[in-house]
Design a protein around this nucleic acid. Structure first.
Lengths: 146, 146
DNA sequence: ACACCATAGTTAGAGCTCTAATGATCGTCA
DNA sequence: TGACGATCATTAGAGCTCTAACTATGGTGT
């Protein structure tokens, strides 16, 4: 099966180009792409658990653990034990985290807006729908595998 | 800007679901996704340089170096100096590499065929075209950044 | 009450990925 | 001949990512 016929290779290249573009612009704010994603969700949901954050960002808990560790070392987040549910750690942005996110977000949004502007409203909806079907199939295939 | 409106998040999730599905099936053949990609290109172009392979797989040379190192340790490829162009290393599959690829390829193709079967011919072409425009914009944006 | 299960968090280990910097070789051009 | 630039290869270092295995807590079932 020729590579050019494989939807996967187009998908992968597009995702990689996106990641590279975001990485280039976020670097100026001192963040990586996963760090930015985590801060963005935390900003909307202060105090959410690392596990919930991992689900939101579509990564595994150990991966999120790594990202949070780096964010914590930079003083951008703080993690405090939950009042009574002692098994969960509440994660929140620090003031510095808010400032860094406020610097990074416009940069990331600029990339997204630029990308969106390449398409008409109808094309965007088509693309999102097609990608959604890819995700649906691939995730069910993954489950069926085992 | 809401996350659900960002094309990037859909793109990223789709690519990740694809990678996860391939990873699950390729694991049974003892390969990672990048290792499989490298073997696949090498199979079609015996003797190609690591730099050319990196371009084909859309990764940087140091990344390909890491992948090739692991493949070499498993005895799946061999790298020999070019006859007169002494700066380049010709990379080739070993017999074992051929066998492993012959085992892995049908598994990967099964995922690709399953994914392709989710769409009509026209939908596939639409998806590839839209992704191509994403790639085009993002790569030019990346250049303009610097 | 006790076993069970789901969830949260973590650690260990392997592998991929990038940027940045370095060194080696070849071809070209003054 | 000698300098320059292009290409190839590699190393160092930081960070992301996964699977696998483990611990701990809280709720649910009999």
């Amino acid at each position: 099966m020729p590579v050019s016929e494989r939807l996967g290779s187009h998908l992968k290249r597009a995702a990689q180009a996106l990641s590279a573009a975001k990485q280039a612009t976020l670097k100026q704010a001192g963040l990586t792409v996963p760090q930015y994603a985590a801060l963005l969700y935390l900003s909307d949901n202060p105090g959410m658990s690392a596990a919930a954050l991992a689900r939101a960002c579509a990564v595994t808990p150990p991966t999120m653990n790594t990202v949070l560790k780096n964010l914590q070392e930079q003083g951008l987040i703080e993690r405090t034990p939950h009042e009574w549910h002692r098994n969960i750690l509440e994660t929140r942005l620090t003031e510095k985290g808010e400032r860094v996110l406020a610097d990074a977000d416009p940069r990331a949004v600029r990339v997204e807006r630029g990308l969106a502007a390449e398409f008409s409203q109808e094309e965007r909806e088509t693309l999102v729908a097609l990608l959604g079907r890819c995700i649906g199939f691939l995730e069910s295939a993954r489950q069926a595998e085992h």
